[in-house]
Design a protein around this nucleic acid. Structure first.
Lengths: 180, 180
DNA sequence: AAGCCCATGTAACTGGTTACATGATTCT
DNA sequence: AGAATCATGTAACCAGTTACATGGGCTT
């Protein structure tokens, strides 16, 4: 039940509405960590409130409810953060495709690996821009916030994927040369 | 519906029973790409057979059914491999925790980041051994198979996580020094 | 004979996605 | 006035997990 902990983590940063949370999950977590739509988030917030982990701390003008995390919620979040993570299962469709490359014939593998390297490179470059924006917005000498850390993780992630795809292409070429 | 494609990919390598597939998903895909238990795999194989993507190619002694992929299955697998992957959502509990580090206080962040770096390093080293085993088992001059490529991906993945966690610790230390 | 691994299945439940539905506020 | 965005919710369906259930074959 990790959605609950994702929401607790986001609310621990600052109180937010279900709408805000939906956008932040979409913008910052989907792609690497977790994802969920509003239809899953609203009921979960209700359940978390019923369980005493979250509470409505304010009500906005147009019927919005601003949720905050309770002390029990903070405790639960910390407990989860430190709980042993035994071989956590992961789901990533991009990686699944990488693993299934062997099902294609060689010319197809090359085309796809090149596409994957290019796509990962694009995303890495994009995150490089994001990082620059964050750094430019941070006054010199100030420590930058966690958004900077997350963006760095994303960049390294995509660079790793890109470099692996390029390495794979080299390996295939070398094998090809050897068979001539 | 990626489980279907994961199974098609595994069957494209060679025909296998649902039991074999369950183990291979657990051993090679879970942790990075996908995961599923036998209770999800057996019914899916039936559905894939009904849809003409897989077929029973042999029946073993103790009631086992060996499934193979049909031509239509191969075509579907290729179609999926080349289909655009627009911002594929991912789920990874380890990464989710990385993103939620900001919810902890500084001493806790340090402890957890150190634990995460150590855990990732252990896994990277372990995959290094796996890679060595694969290379030792491959006759010199021969191109190694896709297991080698997948293992390389895993090693780079864990190294990336480890290096990011270490970089984070450095950033925190530096911020700490600057505030003194 | 006991214990382990091979091998398959179903049922009940929980988590997650897609589609439907509504309405207020702000911007152009 | 119309469009975009904010804001919340439910219903139906599909995917995934946990628990239950069974039996053959191999090794000690």
């Amino acid at each position: 039940m990790s959605l609950r902990h994702a929401l607790l983590g986001l609310l621990a940063d600052r109180p937010q509405t279900g709408y805000d949370l939906t956008k932040r999950v979409e913008e910052t977590l989907a792609g690497y960590a977790w994802n969920a739509g509003h239809s899953q988030i609203y009921p979960e917030l209700k359940r978390m409130t019923a369980d005493g982990l979250a509470e409505v701390v304010d009500e906005g003008s147009r019927g919005s409810k601003v949720y905050g995390v309770t002390e029990a919620g903070r405790a639960e979040l910390r407990r989860w953060m430190f709980s042993p993570l035994g071989e956590a299962p992961a789901r990533n469709e991009f990686v699944l495709r990488l693993f299934m490359l062997s099902s294609l014939d060689l010319p197809d593998v090359r085309v796809l690996a090149e596409q994957m390297a290019a796509a990962s490179d694009r995303q890495a470059v994009e995150l490089g821009h994001t990082i620059k924006e964050i750094e430019d917005a941070t006054p010199a000498g100030q420590p930058h916030g966690y958004a900077r850390f997350a963006a760095e993780f994303g960049r390294r992630w995509f660079e790793m994927q890109r470099d692996w795809a390029r390495w794979l292409l080299e390996q295939l070429e070398q094998a090809h040369r050897d068979t001539e």
